[in-house]
Protein backbone atom coordinates (compact mmCIF):
# COMPACT_ATOMS: atom_id res chain seq x y z
CA UNK A 1 0.00 0.00 0.00
CA UNK A 2 1.27 3.44 -0.85
CA UNK A 3 2.20 5.89 1.84
CA UNK A 4 -0.72 8.14 2.77
CA UNK A 5 -0.44 11.70 1.61
CA UNK A 6 -1.85 14.58 3.63
CA UNK A 7 -5.32 15.62 2.59
CA UNK A 8 -5.67 19.21 3.68
CA UNK A 9 -3.13 21.34 1.88
CA UNK A 10 -2.23 24.91 2.61
CA UNK A 11 -4.83 27.55 1.88
CA UNK A 12 -4.65 28.97 -1.59
CA UNK A 13 -6.09 32.16 -2.92
CA UNK A 14 -8.38 31.62 -5.85
CA UNK A 15 -9.76 34.35 -8.04
CA UNK A 16 -13.41 34.90 -7.35
CA UNK A 17 -15.18 32.46 -9.65
CA UNK A 18 -17.70 33.46 -12.21
CA UNK A 19 -21.35 32.99 -11.56
CA UNK A 20 -22.78 30.13 -13.52
CA UNK A 21 -26.13 29.89 -15.20
CA UNK A 22 -28.29 27.01 -14.07
CA UNK A 23 -31.83 25.94 -14.78
CA UNK A 24 -34.19 24.74 -12.09
CA UNK A 25 -37.81 23.85 -12.30
CA UNK A 26 -39.27 25.25 -9.11
CA UNK A 27 -42.86 24.35 -8.30
CA UNK A 28 -43.61 23.78 -11.95
CA UNK A 29 -42.04 26.88 -13.41
CA UNK A 30 -38.70 26.96 -15.13
CA UNK A 31 -36.12 29.36 -13.70
CA UNK A 32 -32.84 30.41 -15.24
CA UNK A 33 -30.57 31.64 -12.52
CA UNK A 34 -27.05 32.97 -12.13
CA UNK A 35 -25.51 31.44 -9.05
CA UNK A 36 -22.18 31.53 -7.28
CA UNK A 37 -20.88 28.01 -6.54
CA UNK A 38 -21.31 28.42 -2.79
CA UNK A 39 -24.99 29.37 -2.84
CA UNK A 40 -26.96 26.64 -1.13
CA UNK A 41 -30.29 25.57 -2.54
CA UNK A 42 -31.89 26.97 0.62
CA UNK A 43 -30.38 30.41 0.16
CA UNK A 44 -31.28 30.37 -3.51
CA UNK A 45 -34.93 29.67 -2.72
CA UNK A 46 -35.18 32.24 0.05
CA UNK A 47 -32.89 35.02 -1.11
CA UNK A 48 -33.05 34.82 -4.91
CA UNK A 49 -36.55 33.49 -5.52
CA UNK A 50 -38.31 34.99 -2.49
CA UNK A 51 -39.72 31.60 -1.60
CA UNK A 52 -39.40 32.13 2.12
CA UNK A 53 -41.73 29.30 3.10
CA UNK A 54 -38.71 27.02 3.36
CA UNK A 55 -37.04 27.85 6.64
CA UNK A 56 -33.45 28.02 7.83
CA UNK A 57 -33.16 26.53 11.29
CA UNK A 58 -29.66 25.23 11.88
CA UNK A 59 -28.09 25.48 8.39
CA UNK A 60 -26.21 22.22 9.26
CA UNK A 61 -28.52 19.33 8.41
CA UNK A 62 -29.61 18.94 12.01
CA UNK A 63 -33.21 20.21 12.14
CA UNK A 64 -35.09 19.55 8.89
CA UNK A 65 -36.68 23.04 8.69
CA UNK A 66 -35.20 23.43 5.20
CA UNK A 67 -36.65 20.18 3.81
CA UNK A 68 -37.78 20.36 0.17
CA UNK A 69 -38.30 17.73 -2.51
CA UNK A 70 -35.77 17.47 -5.31
CA UNK A 71 -36.86 15.20 -8.14
CA UNK A 72 -39.47 13.85 -5.77
CA UNK A 73 -37.14 13.05 -2.88
CA UNK A 74 -36.99 14.89 0.42
CA UNK A 75 -33.62 16.45 1.17
CA UNK A 76 -32.14 19.18 3.38
CA UNK A 77 -31.77 22.19 1.10
CA UNK A 78 -29.17 23.75 3.45
CA UNK A 79 -26.76 20.88 2.76
CA UNK A 80 -26.79 21.05 -1.01
CA UNK A 81 -25.39 23.62 -3.40
CA UNK A 82 -27.83 25.02 -5.93
CA UNK A 83 -25.31 24.50 -8.72
CA UNK A 84 -25.24 20.76 -8.01
CA UNK A 85 -28.97 20.55 -8.72
CA UNK A 86 -28.82 22.15 -12.16
CA UNK A 87 -31.65 20.67 -14.25
CA UNK A 88 -33.66 19.33 -11.30
CA UNK A 89 -37.26 19.73 -10.23
CA UNK A 90 -37.67 21.36 -6.86
CA UNK A 91 -40.91 21.33 -4.87
CA UNK A 92 -41.28 23.62 -1.87
CA UNK A 93 -44.18 24.25 0.48
CA UNK A 94 -45.36 27.02 -1.89
CA UNK A 95 -45.88 24.40 -4.60
CA UNK A 96 -48.20 22.04 -2.75
CA UNK A 97 -51.59 23.76 -2.96
CA UNK A 98 -53.44 23.48 -6.25
CA UNK A 99 -55.82 26.14 -7.55
CA UNK A 100 -56.43 27.46 -4.09
CA UNK A 101 -57.04 24.04 -2.56
CA UNK A 102 -54.63 22.97 0.13
CA UNK A 103 -52.71 19.76 -0.28
CA UNK A 104 -54.25 17.00 1.90
CA UNK A 105 -51.20 17.14 4.17
CA UNK A 106 -51.55 20.88 4.66
CA UNK A 107 -55.24 20.41 5.47
CA UNK A 108 -54.42 17.59 7.87
CA UNK A 109 -51.90 19.76 9.71
CA UNK A 110 -54.67 22.33 10.23
CA UNK A 111 -57.26 19.73 11.19
CA UNK A 112 -54.93 18.11 13.70
CA UNK A 113 -53.54 21.34 15.10
CA UNK A 114 -50.09 20.03 14.18
CA UNK A 115 -48.11 23.21 14.81
CA UNK A 116 -47.65 25.94 17.36
CA UNK A 117 -45.15 28.58 16.21
CA UNK A 118 -45.17 27.08 12.72
CA UNK A 119 -41.47 27.48 12.04
CA UNK A 120 -40.79 23.80 11.49
CA UNK A 121 -44.08 23.22 9.64
CA UNK A 122 -43.07 23.72 5.98
CA UNK A 123 -40.20 21.28 6.54
CA UNK A 124 -42.46 18.85 8.39
CA UNK A 125 -45.01 18.87 5.57
CA UNK A 126 -42.45 18.46 2.77
CA UNK A 127 -40.77 15.71 4.78
CA UNK A 128 -44.09 13.96 5.39
CA UNK A 129 -44.85 14.11 1.67
CA UNK A 130 -41.50 12.44 0.98
CA UNK A 131 -42.18 9.87 3.68
CA UNK A 132 -45.57 8.93 2.22
CA UNK A 133 -44.11 8.59 -1.27
CA UNK A 134 -41.24 6.45 -0.01
CA UNK A 135 -43.78 4.04 1.43
CA UNK A 136 -41.67 2.59 4.24
CA UNK A 137 -43.76 3.82 7.16
CA UNK A 138 -47.12 2.57 8.35
CA UNK A 139 -47.09 2.16 12.11
CA UNK A 140 -46.78 5.15 14.45
CA UNK A 141 -43.28 4.02 15.45
CA UNK A 142 -42.18 3.77 11.83
CA UNK A 143 -43.56 7.23 11.11
CA UNK A 144 -41.82 8.68 14.18
CA UNK A 145 -38.52 7.07 13.20
CA UNK A 146 -38.67 8.20 9.58
CA UNK A 147 -39.73 11.73 10.59
CA UNK A 148 -36.90 12.06 13.12
CA UNK A 149 -35.03 14.37 10.77
CA UNK A 150 -37.56 17.11 11.52
CA UNK A 151 -37.20 18.70 14.90
CA UNK A 152 -40.13 20.63 16.38
CA UNK A 153 -38.96 23.01 19.07
CA UNK A 154 -42.56 23.48 20.22
CA UNK A 155 -42.99 19.73 20.66
CA UNK A 156 -46.05 19.36 18.44
CA UNK A 157 -44.98 15.80 17.66
CA UNK A 158 -48.16 13.91 18.69
CA UNK A 159 -50.28 16.14 16.46
CA UNK A 160 -47.80 15.99 13.59
CA UNK A 161 -47.97 12.20 13.82
CA UNK A 162 -51.78 12.36 13.83
CA UNK A 163 -51.80 14.60 10.74
CA UNK A 164 -49.54 12.22 8.83
CA UNK A 165 -51.60 9.21 9.86
CA UNK A 166 -54.79 10.97 8.78
CA UNK A 167 -53.25 11.76 5.40
CA UNK A 168 -52.03 8.22 4.85
CA UNK A 169 -55.49 6.92 5.72
CA UNK A 170 -57.46 9.34 3.57
CA UNK A 171 -55.28 9.55 0.47
CA UNK A 172 -53.50 6.22 0.08
CA UNK A 173 -50.65 7.56 -1.99
CA UNK A 174 -50.47 11.29 -2.53
Amino acid sequence: MKRPIEFESARRVTPSPQRTQITLNVNGSEKRLNVAPWTTLLDLLREHLDLTGTKKGCDHGQCGACTVLVDGKRINSCMTLAIMKDGSNVTTIEGLAHNGTLHPLQQAFIDCDAFQCGYCTPGQICSALGLIREGHAETPDEIRELMSGNICRCGAYPNILAAIQQTIKTTKGV
Binding site: T67, I75, M79, G130, L131, E134, S148, G149, N150
Partner: peptide, 9 residues
Amino acid sequence: GASAQLRNM
Protein backbone atom coordinates in the same frame (compact mmCIF):
# COMPACT_ATOMS: atom_id res chain seq x y z
CA GLY B 1 -27.79 6.59 10.89
CA ALA B 2 -28.66 10.24 10.25
CA SER B 3 -32.20 11.06 9.03
CA ALA B 4 -34.31 10.06 6.05
CA GLN B 5 -33.47 13.34 4.29
CA LEU B 6 -29.73 12.97 4.88
CA ARG B 7 -29.77 9.34 3.76
CA ASN B 8 -31.51 10.47 0.55
CA MET B 9 -28.51 12.71 -0.13
